[in-house]
Simulated assay, not measured.
Amino acid sequence: MRYEKCEQCRQWAASIALSSGAFLAILKFAVGVTSGSKGCIADSLHSAIIFVMALAIILGRRLAGKEENSKFHYGYGKIEAVVTGSITFLIACGGAVLVWNSVKHLMNAPQYGPPHLSALLMALTSIIANEMLARYLLCVGTQSKTRSILANAWAYRENLISSIIVFVGIIGAELGLGVLDPIAAILVVALITKSCTLIVLDSVKALMDYSVNGTYGKKVRTIVEAVDGVQRIAALRTRQIGHKIWLDLDICVSPGQSIREANHIAQKVREALLNQIADIDKVIVAWSPLEEDRC
């Protein structure tokens, strides 16, 4: 990390994202209801997704600290995927209801007036807050090399886009184009649907032990091959447990190495991976002499 305070920022990042997401979601929903802005209500659902993502990070960290037991030999990491997927599905259902109401609003546009100006102020506040939070989390995620924090940062940046859409829609409604506010709501729900789909797919993949070799494979191979004594990598298997990665690795060592020396090489590989990739939680390293069939 670049600065000593980066570690402190990393520890607080998920809590800041969680509280900010919850605050913005509640505030936007309240303003949307009182001002009559469908776009503002839709934007509140988008903030709720960020809240869910931050909740998943905190939940994952707490569960990761729980010890395995006789009933759960591999810990509780997958509950994060269950909770995240379930809450995201409920948010998607809320989005569907909002689209239906927005369509009805479009069909009866002459009966509705423009939203109150408080919705415009809320949208502007959301734009500023989302940009500040995105920059903060991008800095923390980049310095700490934490993928989950970076994902939260880009979620805030996407929420910024939805807030801009709402801002434009409300201005249009104030200028006499009343249909722009519900149209903005539909566009925001489209962004929400995209986010929800990706989160639910990630949750399903996590439950099915989907390989993350595509994300971490190249870096893992670079680190392992740099360890003195490793001849080649015979097999690399990864899976995501909560917000952490578990890794099974088969390496090949020289046939002339003693069992003690080979075990020492395997230990050095394990330590190098844990020290250089923050997302890795557990590493199992098996070794074989280079001349064996598995190598």
Rank of each mutant, 00 (worst) to 15 (best):
C6S: 15
R10W: 02
Q11N: 14
I16F: 14
L18S: 04
I26G: 02
L27H: 03
K28S: 11
F29L: 15
V31L: 04
S35M: 04
K38C: 04
S47P: 10
S47T: 14
M53E: 10
M53C: 09
I57W: 05
I57N: 03
L59R: 02
G60R: 07
R61C: 00
L63H: 07
A64I: 02
Y74T: 12
Y76M: 02
E80F: 01
V83Y: 05
T84E: 13
T88K: 05
L90H: 03
I91K: 02
I91L: 10
A92T: 10
G94W: 11
G95D: 13
A96M: 13
S102W: 10
L106Q: 05
L106S: 01
L106D: 01
A109H: 00
A109G: 01
Q111F: 13
G113E: 07
P115R: 12
P115H: 09
H116I: 01
L117A: 15
S118M: 14
L120E: 09
L121M: 15
M122E: 14
E131K: 06
E131C: 01
L133C: 08
A134K: 05
A134R: 07
Y136W: 11
K145P: 02
K145I: 03
T146R: 09
R147F: 06
S148R: 08
I149K: 10
L150P: 05
N152D: 14
A153E: 03
E158T: 15
S163A: 15
S163V: 04
G169R: 07
G169W: 02
I170W: 11
L175I: 04
G176L: 13
G176I: 12
L177T: 12
G178M: 12
V179G: 03
V179E: 12
V179Q: 09
I183W: 04
A184I: 06
V188D: 08
V188R: 01
K194R: 10
T197V: 11
I199D: 01
L201Y: 14
L201S: 08
L207P: 00
S211R: 06
G217N: 00
T222M: 06
I223A: 09
G229H: 06
V230T: 08
V230K: 07
Q231S: 14
R232C: 13
I233D: 13
R237K: 14
T238K: 08
T238P: 04
T238W: 04
R239D: 07
Q240V: 14
G242R: 03
W246P: 00
L247T: 09
L247F: 09
D248T: 07
S254Y: 11
I259T: 12
I259K: 10
R260H: 11
R260N: 12
E261R: 13
E261Q: 15
N263H: 15
I265F: 00
I265N: 05
R270V: 00
R270S: 11
A272Q: 13
A272S: 13
L273V: 07
N275S: 14
N275F: 01
D279W: 00
K282I: 02
A286S: 11
P289T: 09
E291P: 01
E292P: 05
